[in-house]
Amino acid sequence: MELLTLPFMQRALAAAMIIGLAAPALGIYLVQRRLSLIGDGIGHVALTGVGLGLLTGNEPVLSAIVVATIGAVGVELVRERGRTSGDLALAMLFYGGIAGGVLLVGLSDGSGNSSLMQYLFGSPLTTSATDLMVIGGLGVTVLAAMLFFRPALFALCNDEEYARVSGLPVRTLNILLAVTTAVTVTIAMRTVGLLLVSALMVVPVAAAQQLTRGFVSTMTVAMLIGVGAAGAGVLVSAEADTAPGATTVLLALGVFVATAVTASIRHRLRRPQTPQTTSEPPDVVLHA
C-alpha cells in the first residue's frame, strides 16, 4: 500500500473515483432509455477531437470535449426526429469518428501509436495535476446535474411523451443528457479509455439493478459499484501490472456476475412463498 504515497498514484486514484461516481449516475438514464451503447459511439467521435488537439497543439481533452459534444448533440437531433435511418446515420458518425481520430493522431507526431493506445484504453497513471483539476471540475458538475435534475430526467427517460405533456423542457433535458454524455466520455478516457468508457456507465447499473427495487436505490448502488470498481481497478492494475482500464471494467463485470447470481438464487428461494397473482381475463373469449 506504499503505492498510495506516490503523488501520481493519488492523482490516478482520485480521477478514477470521480469518474466511477459520475459515469453510472449518468449511465442509469442512458440504460433506462435503451441507449446503453451511446457512450461507446460518442467515445468513437471523441477520438477525432483528440486527433485534432494533438495535430493543432491544443489540449486533447478540450478539443475532444468540443467534438464529442457536437457529435452527441447531433446524435440527439437525429434521435429526436425518430427517422428509421437514424440507426444508419449513427453508425456512419461513429465510424467516421474513429477513422478520423486514428488518421489525425497518426499525422500529429512520431509516437502516434503509443499515444493512440493511451486514449483508446486509458492511462490513469499519467494523470497530471491539471488533468485532475479538469476531471474533478467537470466530473463534479456532471454528478451534480444528474442528482439535481433526477426527478425530471427520470420522468423524461421513463416516459418521454408524458414528460412532454407535463410541460417539461424535453428538448433542453435531452441536450443536457447529450452534453453530459460527451463530457463524461471525454474525462473518462484518461481512466478507462474511449473504447471502454461506456462500460463504466452501463455495467454498474446492470449490476445494481439485479439487487434493487427502485430507481433511487439503483442509482445509489450503481454509483457505489462504479467508484469501487474504478478505485480497485487502479490499485489492482498497479500491483499486478495489468492494463488499468481493462482491469476496472473486468472488476465491474465481476460484480455484475456476482449480483446476477445472488439475484437468481434469491429469486429461486423466494418463489414458493409468493402468492399466485390473479391472471387477467383475455381480451377475447372464443365461444365453442
Partner: peptide, 21 residues
C-alpha cells in the same frame, strides 16, 4: 428497460408539472 422503478417513484413524476424542474 430493466432499470427498476417503484410505484411511488413513477407516481411522483406527476408532480413535476406543478413543481417545475
Amino acid at each position: 428497460s430493466g432499470v427498476p422503478a417503484t410505484v411511488g417513484e413513477v407516481v411522483a413524476s406527476g408532480r413535476l408539472a406543478r413543481r417545475g424542474v
